[in-house]
């Protein structure tokens, strides 16, 4: 065999650099930095520790759900039921504590188990019955919400003890509890995805599930795990949310799945599976929240903010497509 042509090698290296520079994460980072700078210069209250930590407790729920959502979308799946699991867990928590008189600690554990069961049911239909994730979780989206409504009968739980309310409103080492929980979640998911066999398997499954099976990867087990993880994260987010808003309602979390999916996809994770990562998802979350908050501080009305965010989402995707095209043009050699 002849050696590899040094010119080719040089080109491959250059191409790798171009690919890196034009990756969606890079573009997103630049966009986020620009947004932060513009908003900070427009309003001195924006870039304050107080404002930022408040913002983080506001996006906590969506962020926590977006972490397992990233894993799921990387395998080429989707979980539309998380908003409903969120609502159901909140209702289960309030119902068991107030109506059934369970100790609050046990009710919290039950709410978390409820999320795990919700995810496991999704996993069962996806893995064992072979129903596509979109259909399965669209069905359980309706199902879980219905169960939540049935249990709550439009009543809400109130009057939680102070120690519980401290989770959602209190601080630890000078920062809201949400920041610490989220940080742990981010580190765990990031390590899982980028450093472990499990994470590697998810990418392989998203790119070519059949080849992953042929390589002995436990595809079915992995799918169960990510949907269970997703259900658990939704339930955990719900517990913290109930503590922050001090009440439970059966319509909590509706539409939350779409916020999470938007952040994941904006973050560069391919909706067809196989590529993406936690870093992108975080940037996606930050960009959306920075815009919401910044525009609010700038006195833009809520409906106008929604419109602007929609436009930014579309623009980000278009920009990404443009850079993808540019990348193909710059690196083309066949």
């Amino acid at each position: 065999m002849t050696a590899i042509d040094p010119i080719v090698q040089h080109h491959e290296r250059r191409n790798a650099i171009i690919t890196r520079l034009l990756a969606q994460e890079t573009i997103l980072l630049v966009l986020t930095v620009i947004a932060v700078l513009v908003l900070a210069s427009a309003n001195e209250r924006f870039l304050t520790a107080r404002n930022l930590s408040r913002e983080i407790s506001l996006i906590f729920e969506v962020a926590l759900i977006a972490l397992p959502m990233t894993l799921i979308i990387i395998t080429g799946g989707i979980d539309l039921s998380v908003g409903s699991i969120f609502g159901l867990s909140a209702i289960v928590l309030g119902f068991l504590w107030q109506d059934s008189g369970w100790p609050l600690e046990v009710a919290i554990a039950a709410a978390l188990v409820c999320g795990i069961i919700g995810g496991a049911i999704n996993g069962f239909f996806i893995v064992r019955v072979g129903v596509p994730p979109l259909i399965t979780t669209l069905a359980t989206l309706a199902l879980y919400r219905g169960v939540a409504l049935g249990i709550s009968e439009a009543r809400s739980a109130r009057g939680f003890p102070d120690w519980f309310l401290g989770i959602g409103r209190g601080e630890f080492l000078g920062a809201p509890w949400q920041i610490w929980i989220l940080l742990i979640g981010i580190v765990i998911t990031w390590l899982l995805l980028s450093r472990t066999i499990f994470g590697r398997s998810l990418y392989a499954m998203g790119n070519n599930e059949l080849a992953a099976r042929f390589a002995g990867i436990p595809v079915n087990r992995n799918k169960w795990l990510i949907y269970v993880f997703s259900g658990f994260a939704a339930a955990l987010a719900a517990v913290v949310f109930v503590s922050r808003v001090t009440t439970t309602r059966s319509d909590m979390g509706s539409g939350m799945e779409l916020d999470a999916i938007a952040a994941v996809v904006l973050g560069g994770t391919s909706i067809f599976g196989g590529s993406g990562g936690i870093g992108g998802t975080l940037l996606g979350l930050i960009l959306i929240q920075v815009l919401k908050n910044g525009l609010l501080l700038a006195g833009v009305r809520g409906d106008a903010t929604s419109i602007l965010i929609g436009i930014v989402l579309i623009a980000a995707i278009l920009l990404n497509n443009f850079f993808q095209w540019l990348q193909v043009r710059l690196t083309a050699n066949k």
Binding site: I197, A204, N207, N208, L210, A211, F214, I217
Partner: peptide, 29 residues
Amino acid sequence: GTQGLVRAMSIRENTSMAILKLMSTGGFI
């Protein structure tokens, strides 16, 4: 194409795919 390889992944990731357990400690690659 469909059974043997994950084409979008690297040579490194493909050659280790069937023996990831041997290529890791405690699940970490």
